[in-house]
Amino acid sequence: MGNDTELVTPGEKLGRASEFKAGRGAYVSPDNLTVYASLTGLRHIVSPPPDSPDQRPIVEVTGHKAHGAIPEPGSIVIARVTKVMARMASADIMCLGTKSVRENFTGIIRLQDIRATEIDKVDMHKSFHPGDIVRAIVLSLGDARAYFLSTAKNELGVISAQSAAGVPMVAISWTEMQCPITGQIEHRKVAKVGG
């Protein structure tokens, strides 16, 4: 739509609020008159989805580096379990979706959030061990310390774990993984990977 390559910086006017809706990297001033940029980048105009009642085109700022991703409720994360306690396990979030995080964030998986069924029979030590790589969903921003994570879905849980012998184990069921060298079976909350 014409001036697609215009470079803008924070605070520059993108258009009038009566003509445009603010998308990513843009905001509407409190008096509801003007749309301003809040990031440095290229000014883009996107046409609204055909079924939306508001038919104003959306103006957004894209293309420039945004700040590092931060976890938000609903995002899928890859985390490494650092500490397993009786009622919860703490984990360092390493990836958000497909992107690795620039800074370290701490998450907590509580006992009741490990699996969806029979949550009264879950044993924390039979679900995670320190060093396990888990896929989890962010439940909420949590408390002052950590984000609350959940693995209560088939595709969530341990995706990679090492046995006592120090080799990656193979999943043999929803709750068990086996060491390919010693044949020892360990308990985990195994994630359904692929398929």
């Binding site: 910086t9 924070p10 605070g11 990297g25 905001y27 301003y36 809040s38 990031l39 440095t40 420039h64 580096k65 945004a66 700040h67």
Partner: peptide
């Protein structure tokens, strides 16, 4: 801050 991509109302 603008270089870091932090959202700002204005410079």
């Amino acid at each position: 801050l603008a270089d870091a991509g932090i959202m700002m109302y204005d410079l």
